[in-house]
Design a protein around this nucleic acid. Sequence first.
DNA 1: TTGCCAAATTCATCTAGACGACTAGTTATC
DNA 2: GATAACTAGTCGTCTAGATGAATTTGGCAA
Lengths: 251, 251
Amino acid sequence: MTDGGDIGGGARKLARGEGVALWRQITQQMEREISGGQYGPGARLPTEAELAERFDVNRHTVRRAMEELEGRGLVRIEQGRGSFVAEDVVDYRLGPRTRFSENIRRQNREPGGRILRVEEMPAEAQLADLLGMRRGRPVVVVERLSLVDGRPLLIGTHHFPASRFGRIPDLLKENPSITAALVACGVPDYRRKVTRITARLPTAEESELLQQSRNRPVLVSEAVNVDPAGEVVDVTIARYAAGRMQMVVES
Amino acid sequence: MTDGGDIGGGARKLARGEGVALWRQITQQMEREISGGQYGPGARLPTEAELAERFDVNRHTVRRAMEELEGRGLVRIEQGRGSFVAEDVVDYRLGPRTRFSENIRRQNREPGGRILRVEEMPAEAQLADLLGMRRGRPVVVVERLSLVDGRPLLIGTHHFPASRFGRIPDLLKENPSITAALVACGVPDYRRKVTRITARLPTAEESELLQQSRNRPVLVSEAVNVDPAGEVVDVTIARYAAGRMQMVVES
DNA sequence: TTGCCAAATTCATCTAGACGACTAGTTATC
DNA sequence: GATAACTAGTCGTCTAGATGAATTTGGCAA
């Protein structure tokens, strides 16, 4: 065995004062061990205190490394329980006719969800432009948390022109399905016209609702939906727990 | 004015010991001030030391808050210089015939790039399946950093079956255009068949190449490209600096 | 057995201080 | 005038220690 290193899983000496931060070296080492199969998916990792001792650094330094791994999607950290190797992702198809429930059921998983918020408010400039309506005219905003097998996957915020869809709040009280509410408003079908996608870290509220760590990004999609006549039905902004899904675009 | 608070922009007292972490409260306050226009896009924010004094907390607490804002895309932190309010994003169209250069030029921006790595290696299981070839057979791997107006936007890793595209390494020495190399290999045209998108924090190397903070996520896309006959040409994995672009999917 | 409480474990936050690394501007030197 | 050396300002990393919050465990009482 070479200079104090123990490739089999023991402590490998960190290089101090050589330009590479200690926490980065710990990140790399843990990454090697996880992808090398030292710990299987879902397995529990040593505690921060143990790792700190093993690498002979302060616990804060280990924490910095673990936070990095969590953000990269390799581990999941739970307060009071420990750290675990990450697992499982859902495929989420993004097509012109994407409907959440069908999408999920196609993968033999159980869709679910609940309405978080329904309100009417004036349209801001950018939103009004996308909806093709005048600024300040009322829009109905519906926010929904969608689940897969009981785990939150996305937060969707829908914006409908109130002139045409003012009945939606009442309809949703009867039946929480947005698609059904649209049918009742005379929109039997709609399709996605354009989608913009980016990613960022979640706000405190988002990470709370999605039950996802602050370090894991959210995929943010902004979609414009139109009815068969090409009329804009709504603008939806959805935030997906990136750690739990992969968006699939077919073309 | 109420209990020591100065809504106009001065120090607002933080609530200690009430269940909300101090760094979160600082995040919120700074967010309010930035989105409220206290600081314009690109403007320099107070130093960490100044903020620490203003909020009456340790500098580390301010740092935690600023890292959060950076990850969310609101600010940009530069060592030795300071922190600045974030700006500008590029639209990146993702369609069946997406070509990087055209895509960028359409927005009156200047595309650029350089080849990072070219090598031949055996195909791993998953990759071989996607390419429709046997495991372990050689693939040509080309890694390229693509720039917009001189700023890195994405790292693309292309995987070609070596049987058909073994000449690519030599061709790229003449002309660094991948599209041109494919033409020379008898593939005048190709299109994107399916794309999978997710997001995660970047590795050290990725954040280095993309010149993007460790806290800003990368959008990761995996695309399968096929020629007009439907034969798989390559599998490309691209990592985009999420802070500098929005992916646009039209359907 | 069930339910509850207390202790132990483990991660989360905050403070305090030191030093390193990078930037930008100033001064000294050739 | 150009260049090098220095300096102040600012962010980055690391240590050390204290306290809080969430979870698990084990024992005791009903």
